[in-house]
């Protein structure tokens, strides 16, 4: 895990965006995370607008941490994984809470990855990690740009590892990306990040 030695420990949250071709990837990531994974993970995955049930249940089969679709105004908690609900945009608001919206489609999507990434980076600034996975449109690219501008950490699924690479490739074109990793690399990265975060917590306890 040497290559991730320099990851800071200032991070407060992780946002993940994914679309076509990302389901297997996300499943593998979720099944590889430890039960006590520290940082909140907030996911926006493109999904059918009018199918409210089934998706979160499907993801929960493999995940070690229970994934929830947050309610509006719900507090964002450590050691939790959240999924943007169908037909709502999911945003982060000041005060570490979720904000839902039924606003127009963005990049033909609701939920839109850009909205999650942009609102989260506005709140968490340099303390945010953004991860963009396989997908067939450009949603998420401008959100990754915002994360980079505010000093957050940007990670994409290596376009070569993607089923459909339009999404991470668009981000790569638009902004600086800290890491371009395959699925196993992303898992390794997240484990190293968790270790780094926990080492701080340990120090504080001593």
């Amino acid at each position: 895990m040497d290559k991730f030695n320099s990851i800071g420990n200032q991070y407060k949250a992780i946002v993940i965006g994914g679309s076509a071709g990302s389901f297997q990837v996300i499943n593998k990531i979720l099944s590889s995370l430890p039960r006590d994974f520290e940082l909140p993970i907030i996911m926006c995955l493109h999904r059918l607008r009018h199918v409210r049930n089934g998706f979160v249940e499907a993801l929960n089969i493999k995940s070690n941490i229970e994934i929830k679709e947050p309610l509006d105004k719900e507090s964002i908690k450590k050691n939790s994984i959240y999924l943007a609900p169908a037909n709502y945009h999911l945003g982060v608001d000041i005060g570490n809470t979720f904000a839902l919206s039924t606003d127009d489609l963005v990049n033909n999507s609701r939920p839109s990855i850009d909205i999650l990434l942009q609102t989260a980076s506005y709140v968490y600034k340099h303390k945010l990690v953004g991860i963009l996975l396989s997908g067939a449109n450009r949603d998420g690219a401008s959100g990754m740009q915002k994360i980079a501008e505010r000093g957050g950490l940007t990670v994409i699924q290596d376009p070569k590892d993607c089923l459909i690479d339009t999404m991470p490739a668009s981000a790569l074109k638009l902004t600086t990306i800290d890491y371009s990793l395959n699925t196993d690399g992303i898992i390794e990265f997240l484990l190293a990040l968790d270790k780094s975060i926990k080492s701080v917590a340990l120090l504080k306890n001593e």
Partner: peptide, 8 residues
């Protein structure tokens, strides 16, 4: 108003 959507 909720900040994030008002700002948008």
């Amino acid at each position: 108003y909720a900040m994030s959507s008002f700002k948008r």
